Amino acid sequence: MKHLILTAVLVSGLTFLAASSASAQQDSLKRKKYDINYGLGVTIGEKRDSTGKIDQSKGRFVGGITFTRLDIGFSRLIDNGSFSLSPTNDFLDYKGAKTSTVSFDVLQFGYRFNSNFKIYVAGGFDWTMIRLKKNITIQSNTPDLSYVNEPIIFSKNRFSNSYVHIPLNFELRTNENRRGNRFYVVFGPEIGFLLNGKVKQISDERGKQKFKDDYNFAPFRYGGTFRIGYNSLALFAKYYASDMFDTTAQKGLKNMAFGITLGLN
């Protein structure tokens, strides 16, 4: 997880440096009544009037490359409506404080109707990392979600997945206050496509080991996201209505996440 956060921060930093070097182009575009918002990415679509102020009187399409909406938080498994795992799924028992989620967007395209309402589709990446309690190894290349008990103690036993996610967001925001900040509410459905699954283990006997497979994670998932925030900081909650695994034994096992969002542009 630390490497993912560092990567996201590094990419955002490089984008900011690139934005600084492009200030001359930005001034030129403003004179043409169009604005490029660099920040953490490049967003085109803001239209300006003859005085240089953003024209909010008409709707407009907006979109571009963005590294905002970095979500960092915790994940929880829900077994047929319960936060307690059933005997069938007890092998997935996890350490709640170390079971986490990280996601961020890289693209967004949408339509801003006015200063307070926007609809947009985004695209990015999402990771769920389950820190298993038990000394087991989830098996790869099996038709079901199976495991073996290990005679050793793992200092880390992480079971994770990664998805490409595509959320459709409805954004409501207040008018700017005297400091130029706003309150936001963002909500909408989201779909995802599996990239891969991974098991990472660390032990004294075997050292560091990594195994990749789809591990019967659902190849397609769907759910919804809700955010509420102020300026560039928000709280988020995600719930995936689809099953977490594409196996009969894990039917009804779902995933949710919650945490903080950095950046709401």
Results as ranks from 00 to 15, higher is better:
I130H: 04
K133A: 07
P143L: 06
R112C: 05
L145G: 04
F113R: 14
V148S: 09
T128H: 10
S140A: 12
I152T: 10
V148Q: 10
V121N: 04
G124L: 02
Y147D: 01
N157R: 02
S160D: 06
S140R: 11
D144C: 04
P151R: 04
Q139A: 15
K118W: 13
H165A: 09
S160N: 06
N161G: 08
V148C: 03
M129T: 09
F117S: 11
K134L: 02
I153W: 04
W127N: 06
F125P: 01
T137V: 12
I152S: 09
F109E: 13
N114I: 12
I130N: 03
N141K: 14
R131G: 04
T142G: 01
F117K: 11
R112H: 12
I138E: 00
I130W: 00
N116S: 15
S115D: 15
N114P: 04
D126K: 10
S146H: 02
Y163E: 08
K118Y: 13
N161R: 13
F159N: 05
P143R: 07
G124R: 01
F109N: 15
R112Q: 14
L132T: 04
F159L: 07
D144G: 09
I130K: 00
T128W: 09
K133Y: 05
N141A: 14
L132S: 02
N149P: 00
R158F: 01
T137Y: 03
K134R: 14
F159I: 10
Q108I: 09
V164E: 05
S146E: 12
N141E: 12
H165E: 09
I153S: 09
H165F: 13
H165N: 07
S115L: 08
N157S: 07
P143E: 03
L145S: 05
N116R: 14
I138A: 00
I153P: 01
N161D: 13
R158D: 03
Q139I: 12
S140E: 12
K156N: 08
P143H: 07
A122R: 08
I136N: 00
W127F: 11
I153H: 07
I166L: 12
